[in-house]
């Protein structure tokens, strides 16, 4: 090995130890506030609680087995996944044209982006109250429908209300993800396709859609995860009648004080997220 190669090696080693030193604080913080609590949660799911909420000594599978054998939880898991997927899909369909328009805008583009994400400046709780005012039985929308002599459907305290509210609340995330994905989309590519004989629909199907796929996947992952994990909006707009994993965790931990069941459901939700992430990774690879 030559002297310069040795020096380069030394420099590399020096750089690596500096890198480790710089990464150490965030690694420690993450272990303390993320890894340890999750491990604790996982451990707790192997314990069981007395009727008073007091945890019984010793680890066993009794909480898991009672959960798995209970059809109520299976239907809740299924409901959580399909409502989350539906919310994601509706948010995607509503956000896509909006994001495409904003990314194409030449004038006031910055203002349009701010308008799209400005709902994030208001807490989801406040926005949920807003939806209660609009959708509630004496609310704005039913009143308007009644003024046209129409019988309004139930828009609140059911799944429909949850889906409407959640979709609106998650749309800014979808729009942001889509916008980041549209960066690859050069208008010249569409013009090139047009000159080669592609009509507007073909241009969209063969050029615009495939090139915006990374943004679509990212937005879907983000919205799905947020939809599955949110509990305030489903609780308020579902009126306690829409039992989802996240709301059930809240109830078990805060109301029923059965922490082992809450821990089990938390682990279950983590598995759902892991599966979603796996899908995202695989689909991303195909898109690439």
């Amino acid at each position: 090995m030559t002297v310069s190669a040795l020096e380069a090696n030394d420099a590399k080693r020096g750089g690596r130890s500096l890198l480790s030193a710089l990464l150490l604080p965030i690694v420690l913080v993450n272990i303390l506030v993320f890894v340890a609590p999750v491990a604790n949660l996982a451990a707790m799911s192997f314990r069981s609680a007395a009727a008073t909420g007091a945890m019984i000594e010793g680890f066993n599978l009794s909480t898991w087995s009672s959960l798995i054998s209970d059809a109520y939880y299976w239907s809740m898991l299924w409901r959580t996944v399909w409502i989350g997927a539906l919310i994601t899909l509706v948010a995607l369909v509503l956000s896509y044209p909006l994001a495409l328009f904003v990314s194409r805008a030449t004038r006031a583009k910055a203002l349009l982006i701010v308008l799209c994400i400005s709902p994030l400046l208001i807490s989801a709780v406040v926005r949920t109250y807003g939806w209660m005012v609009i959708l509630g039985d004496q609310g704005f929308l039913p009143a308007m429908l009644r003024s046209f002599n129409l019988t309004p459907p139930r828009l609140i305290n059911n799944q429909l209300g949850v889906i409407i509210g959640m979709t609106e609340i998650l749309m800014p995330y979808m729009i942001l993800s889509l916008l980041s994905g549209f960066g690859k989309l050069d208008a010249t590519l569409e013009q090139a396709a047009e000159t080669l004989g592609a009509g507007p629909f073909t241009v969209f199907r063969r050029i615009v859609l495939p090139l915006s796929m990374p943004g679509i996947l990212l937005g879907c992952l983000l919205c799905f995860v947020l939809a599955v994990s949110s509990f305030i909006t489903p609780k308020m707009l579902g009126g306690g009648r829409v039992a989802l994993l996240a709301t059930e965790i809240y109830d078990q931990a805060i109301v029923t004080l059965n922490w082992p069941v809450a821990a089990c459901l938390s682990v279950l939700i983590l598995i759902v997220f892991g599966t979603a992430l796996l899908f995202y990774g695989q689909l991303s690879k195909i898109v690439e």
Partner: peptide, 19 residues
């Protein structure tokens, strides 16, 4: 419309479809 004209266009930026 462009797509019915049968013109071959080569763009300054080439505009090859990246995907």
């Amino acid at each position: 419309p462009t797509y019915r004209r049968n013109m071959g266009v080569m763009f300054q930026s080439y505009a090859l479809f990246p995907h």
